[in-house]
Amino acid sequence: MSVWERSSTARVTAPARARKLAKVPFVELADGRLQGVVSSGSDIGRVYVSSVAVRTYAFACSTNNNRPCGGARGSFCNHIRALINEAVLQYGAERVARYLGVDTPDGEPGAQSITAFMSGACPQQGDAKAAAPVFSRFLRHLAYLELAPVTAPLPEMQWFPPTRAVA
């Protein structure tokens, strides 16, 4: 059993490269999708919840109050393209390509080649049902940023079972 398996905390993967959080503050590879929150380019108070499904590349993009993105009609909108770019910065191109099931011809995937491969597969517009849980997780992450740094346990994390001392 490795050290992180005996720990009460999850292993955190360091970002592949530093990224700016202003445009895409939240990106994750979860629930069979690349998904996240992307800031609007025209309205500072609006964000979009965008996603691309694994292997089918079905995509969805809508505002945080479930209005469809005007640019996601038949192809990836700029929000989805920004999400893919930031995912490559956060997780690395190889991990993103592997997760999405993208096989780029050049062997060294980058955000542009991943996007081009998925676009070439003629993805269909998918269901935006995932928007609510993704946005909810984003808001929860924001709440953690407002907490003062302390070493005391967080009450909502008390459900973790106590760890035994390893001899």
Rank of each mutant, 00 (worst) to 15 (best):
C122S: 14
R95Y: 01
R95C: 01
L147T: 00
L83Q: 09
Q112C: 04
G71K: 15
S8G: 09
R140F: 03
R67N: 13
F26C: 12
M1A: 13
G32R: 02
A131T: 05
S42H: 06
A152G: 02
E108Q: 11
I114W: 08
S51K: 03
R140M: 07
D127H: 14
L34E: 13
I44V: 10
Q125D: 10
L100N: 08
A148T: 10
K23Q: 15
R140V: 03
L89M: 12
Q124I: 04
R6M: 11
R17E: 07
R81A: 06
P149Y: 07
L147K: 12
A58W: 06
A121G: 13
E156S: 03
F76S: 04
A30V: 09
D43M: 05
V166H: 00
L29R: 02
A152C: 09
V3A: 03
V27P: 07
L100M: 13
A116R: 15
A18I: 01
H141Q: 12
Q35S: 13
R6D: 14
L29S: 05
S136H: 03
Q112H: 11
N66Y: 02
A18N: 03
P109F: 02
I114S: 14
G36N: 10
S39R: 03
V88A: 01
S8V: 00
P123K: 05
C77Y: 04
S119W: 01
V38D: 14
F117W: 10
D31K: 01
Y57S: 10
T63V: 06
L83I: 04
A30P: 05
S75N: 15
G70M: 09
A10Y: 04
V54I: 08
F117G: 15
S136F: 03
T56M: 05
A72W: 01
P15G: 15
Y91F: 15
F26G: 15
P161D: 13
K23F: 11
T163C: 03
V37S: 09
Y57W: 11
A97Q: 04
I44R: 13
K129E: 03
A53C: 12
F26I: 08
W4D: 10
V27F: 06
G45I: 01
R33Q: 14
A93H: 14
V47I: 00
A165G: 01
A111E: 13
Y91N: 07
V88Q: 00
N66K: 14
F26Y: 15
L154N: 07
R164F: 02
A131F: 08
V150A: 11
E156W: 10
I84E: 07
L29V: 06
T115V: 15
F76C: 00
T104G: 05
L89A: 12
A16Y: 11
Y144N: 11
N66C: 04
A116K: 15
A18T: 06
F138E: 11
G120I: 04
A131L: 08
T63A: 05
S40Y: 05
V134N: 14
A72M: 11
V37H: 02
Y99N: 07
R67S: 08
P25K: 08
P15C: 09
P68N: 14
R98W: 00
